[in-house]
Amino acid sequence: MSILVNKDTRLLVQGITGREGAFHTQQMIEYGTNVVAGVTPGKGGEWAVGNTPVFDTVMDAVNATEANASIIYVPARFAPGAIIEAADAGLDLVICITEGVPALDMVEVRAFLDTTNTRLIGPNCPGIITPEEAKVGIMPGHIHTKGHVGLVSRSGTLTYEVVYALTSRGIGQSTAVGIGGDPIIGTTFLDVLQLFEDDPDTEQVVLIGEIGGTDEQKAAEFIANRMSQQVTAFIAGQTAPPGRRMGHAGAIISGGEGTAAEKMAALKAAGA
């Protein structure tokens, strides 16, 4: 078992003919992910990345291939439309890798998603990997090994760092989920912790947070009251100067809310 993606994931790639889309589709296929279709408006009927059929719309692709999840590599200005299109086509899971999506667009997207059954991961995230089953994202596959530790993180490369450390100590992972660092995201720590809690194959969880926002504090509450597994947490940005924005739109400390110290205290108190 695992969460969100596995051998049965039939993946659709939105933006498959772009530079990043093509490169990472190749990497996902090499890892063993079942990539069934691509979508690039205007290129329907063509083939991309070997023998993956390309469609003009998500609806066409779903009808022809029974794709059940989508990953988005389109530029920021087209990403909100791509997410909405995927949700409107009825996909259960949409993962948006794109960074730099305007925050107010995401407010609209989230309000629309609330009316659907689609789960969005991201934007501005590395994606999801269930080792040896499916890599749906941009993470380097070879650093992962199959096992029983679930990871959830707001940061991309920092997650790789932790996975790499686990793997080199012989500790495998059930699923690693990058939820993204933007202020408005589709799936929060809380949602993913709930999924891990319900997954019999995940015995321990690593949570990787950073400064800004209060999602880690909410996660702490859930860990204290509901989680049966041991949770280990890391918060980046302990040495970040207050009031400065550290890249992620979310990583800004303001009004005494969201410092690394606060988050670490909350998680420690929760037994993490």
């Binding site: 993180s153 940061s155 920092l158 950073e210 980046a236 890249g247 990583a251």
Partner: peptide
Amino acid sequence: NYIQLDGEIGCMVNGAGLAMATMD
């Protein structure tokens, strides 16, 4: 994304989270 600070070790990292962790 660049923010100048006062120290002596220049850091070049990919990803905001990893950059902050590297500084830490």
